[in-house]
Design a protein around this nucleic acid. Structure first.
Length: 431
RNA sequence: GGAGAGAUGGCCGAGUGGUCGAAGGCGCUCCCCUGCUAAGGGAGUAUGGGGUUUAUAGCCUCAUCGAGGGUUCGAAUCCCUCUCUCUCCGCCA
């Protein structure tokens, strides 16, 4: 959520900046609502002040045993007038709140302008894609030929966009998550957290998934009461529960920065994306991710973003998987971000780089929705800055290994760093 | 799931219709006093809005005593709903 003060004082610039990311701010609607709000709020407060004064008078008079009927007569209409004004004000404020909750964050000035992913800027590359001297398979064929990846059974169990992994592949999936967690906790200074996978709507509003993106979520109803509002949603990313840990909190200054890491499943309905990546593990309704979250002092958030991306990169470096870093353009960034770096890993079967991590600074956008604050050196509460990034998406990392580490005989070599997590085995082979 | 108790400011804890945004204590900040230390005296110490304003300064004002409704001229106090916490029982991994 943007600061309403900023909208009042600097609407022209705000709306210009929002236009860069393809968002048309309803300037006229805002202005007229704001004018209405001002009138009604002033009126309401005047009536409230009057009521308070008169009530005190009555209190005084009664304690002296005086007659209060004349005072009561004088304010006979006050109650109705006040109630009417309060109702009006409330409706205006609800409208305003709705409007503001749907406005995305302002892109940082360093973010390149653009309309789509075509306009993202590559800022660096690491590693060299391997030359294969045989005809390579995509990850689906590699996994299925090994007999360890089974989409047909997943369809039977749940439907499309789910998967079943068995044996060494299931273990590799688990190994990846363990390896990522260990790296971030032991080398990068993160605190591991375990969080709920079912989350309430206040939390989803806090990080920006609601109210605008409900169709991307799965709703859960206790006892099958679909007629009511959902009790929970399944988390689309651990960013939601982790970041909301500081919702409505005032964090002591000395606890900053807070760096959390969690491994969770993520559930996305991806309602708008049918037809994209229908084959394979790239786009699933359920996938695992190791998520990194920073809760930081506002002056430190851009340094934190650089750290965050480097922590995510470290995983791919240790796995020796080639990747590139992209700065997302204004038009491709997520709702809550001011600046986002994507890490894209090399997928040889697609001869292209594909997103495997997304690291964003949200500045105070989420903190304002969540009222997540710290006490500054003057002792005053001030909004925190929040950042989140994948470190990494486990399923997509698995895809990258299956494709990049495949051999001519159909086997897949286990990256050296993962072998301790795999009981020392060096490859998965066709039996 | 059943029975009961509870939720007040940074913390503890008063407060069952009026001058209560809230006693008292602790903590914290500033000042005074005391030749160190200890003790003592005084003042201050919530958050979010709105108006005014060059101003995140001041001043005026509104709201907030778990959340949301209601009664009333007036609610921390009365009524209703919900959430959460605690104790006991049952069930469960």
């Amino acid at each position: 959520m943007l600061e309403i003060q900023q909208l009042r004082n600097d609407l022209e610039n705000v709306s210009k900046t929002l236009a860069k990311r393809g968002f048309a701010f309803p300037v006229d609607a805002f202005n007229s609502l704001e004018a209405e709000r001002k009138t009604i709020q002033t009126l309401t407060q005047e009536l409230q002040a009057r009521r308070n004064t008169v009530s005190k008078q009555i209190g005084h008079a009664k304690s002296k045993g005086e007659d209060v009927s004349s005072i009561l007569a004088e304010i006979a209409n006050l109650g109705d007038d006040l109630k009417q004004a309060e109702t009006q004000l409330e409706q205006i404020q609800i409208k305003m709140q709705h409007m503001l909750l749907e406005v995305p964050n302002l892109p940082h000035e360093s973010v390149p302008e653009g309309k789509s992913e075509e306009d993202n800027i590559e800022i660096r590359r690491w590693g060299t894609p391997r030359n294969f001297d045989f005809k390579i398979k995509d990850h689906v064929s590699v996994g299925e030929d090994l007999g360890l990846l089974d989409f047909e059974t997943a369809v039977k169990l749940s439907g499309s966009r789910f998967n079943v992994m068995t044996g060494a592949l299931a273990r590799l999936h688990r190994a990846l998550a363990q390896f990522m967690l260990d790296t971030h906790t032991q080398e990068n200074g993160y605190t591991e957290v375990y969080v709920p996978y079912l989350i309430n709507s206040d939390s989803l509003r806090g990080t920006g998934q609601l109210p605008k993106f409900e169709e991307d979520l799965f709703a859960v109803y206790a006892g099958g009461h679909e007629d009511k509002a959902p009790n929970f949603h399944l988390i689309p990313t651990a960013e939601v529960p982790i970041t909301n840990m500081v919702r409505n909190e005032i964090v002591p200054l000395e606890q900053l920065p807070i760096k959390y890491v969690a491994h969770t499943p993520c559930f996305r309905s991806e309602a708008g994306s049918y037809g994209r990546d229908t084959r394979g593990l790239i786009r699933q309704h359920q996938f695992d991710k190791v998520e990194l979250v920073h809760i930081v002092h506002p002056e430190k958030s851009y340094d934190a973003l650089e750290q965050l991306i480097s922590h995510a990169e470290m995983i791919l470096q240790k796995l020796e998987l080639p990747y590139r870093i992209m700065t997302l353009c204004t038009g491709d960034m997520g709702f809550s971000a001011t600046k986002t770096y994507d890490i894209e890993v090399w997928l040889p079967a697609q001869s292209t780089y594909r997103e495997i991590s997304s690291c964003s600074n949200c500045e105070a956008f989420q903190a304002r929705r969540m009222q997540a604050r710290f006490r500054n050196t003057k002792g005053k509460p001030e909004l925190l800055h929040t950042l989140n990034g994948s470190g990494l998406a486990v399923g997509r990392t698995l895809v990258a290994i299956l494709e990049n580490c495949q051999n001519a005989d159909g086997s897949v070599s286990i990256p050296t760093t993962l072998r301790p997590y795999m009981g020392g085995i060096e490859k998965m082979s066709i039996l």
